[in-house]
Computed example of a mutant assay.
Amino acid sequence: MGTIKLPNEVQKELNNVSKVAGYLWQREWAERNAGNISINLTSFFSKEEVKGIGTEVPFDFPKGAAGFVIYITGTGCYLRDLIDKIEEASCILYINEDATAYSIIWGGKREGFGPTCELISHASIHLFNSINHPENLAVVHTHPLELICMSHHELFNDEEELNRQLWMMCPEIKVFVPKGIHCTPYALSSTEPLAKVTIEAFKTRNISLWEKHGATATAPDVEKAWDFLDVANKGAKLLMMCWAAGFKPAGLSNKQLTELEQFT
C-alpha cells in the first residue's frame, strides 16, 4: 500500500478528478467500469520521495517512461467511485528506473487492486506528451454518447468534413476545440496498437475519437480534458438533433468560421 504524503498541488488535482468523474457519470459516459483517467505527476515528486515504496510489479513499459510518477484509475473500477472512494478506485504509481516494473505509492486500497488494463496506452501517451506537448499532463478516456454515434457515421471517414460540421453548429465549438477531433481507426482495447493510433491522433489534435468505442482527450489538467470532450460532444449532439428533426442545419459559413480563428 502507498504511504507517501501528497503535495497540496497533487491533492488539488485529485479533487478535480473526483469532480470530473461525477460529470462523466451524470452524463452516462461512464457505464459500469467504462473509462479511465491518468495524470503525469512526475514533476511533483523527487526520486528520493518515491523510491522504495510499495512492492514492484513487473510490467513492460516504454523505456522512456522510466522514473515517471503517474496517477491512474484501477482495472474493473467504476469511475463513479472516484467521487468518494478515490483511494480505492485509483492509485499513484512509480515506474522504476529500468521501466520494467511499477510500484504503487498511494491509493489502490482495494483487495486485488491493479491499474487499468489501458496502462500501456496511458504510459505511452504520457511519454509522447512529455517530449512533444509537455503542457499536457492529463488523459481522460470516456464514452461520450453522441461522439460515439458519429464514429459509426460515414462522416467518420472524412475527418476534415466531420470537424467542419461540428464547428459550424455554434461558435463555441470552433473556439474551444480549435484543433478538432481525430477520427482514430478501430484498435483492440488494452493493446499497443491502440496506444499507437491514439498517439498519432495527439500529434495534431487534443481529442482522439476511437472508432465504435469512445473518445480520449489530453490537456494540461483533467478539467480541461473534460472541457474538450464536453464541447466536442455538444457539436455532435446538436448536429444529430437537427438530423433527427428532419432538416440539415444551415451552420456557420466558412467565412464565419475563419473569423472565429482570432479567438482560438
Rank of each mutant, 00 (worst) to 15 (best):
M1D: 01
T3V: 11
L6I: 02
P7A: 12
V10W: 00
K19G: 12
G22A: 03
G22S: 07
Q26P: 12
A34N: 09
S38Q: 10
T42H: 00
S46I: 08
E48H: 07
G52M: 15
G54R: 13
P58Y: 15
K63Q: 09
A65R: 00
F68A: 01
F68I: 01
I70Q: 04
L79D: 03
D84Y: 15
E87I: 02
E87A: 15
E88V: 04
S90L: 07
C91G: 07
D98R: 08
D98L: 02
D98P: 00
A99M: 01
E111K: 12
E111M: 13
E118H: 15
S121K: 10
H122V: 09
S130V: 13
H133L: 08
V140Q: 08
L145G: 04
C149H: 15
M150L: 14
H152T: 12
H153G: 00
F156A: 11
D158A: 08
E161A: 08
N163Q: 10
R164Y: 12
Q165S: 02
E172N: 04
F176H: 10
P178H: 14
G180S: 00
T184P: 04
T184H: 03
L188F: 10
S189V: 04
S189R: 06
S190E: 09
V197N: 00
V197M: 02
S208G: 02
S208D: 00
K212S: 07
K212Q: 10
T218Q: 03
D221H: 06
V222H: 03
K224L: 09
A225N: 05
N233M: 03
N233K: 09
G235L: 15
K237W: 09
M241T: 12
W243T: 05
P249S: 13
P249E: 02
A250P: 13
N254Y: 14
T258M: 14
E259S: 15
E259C: 09
L260N: 12
L260K: 13
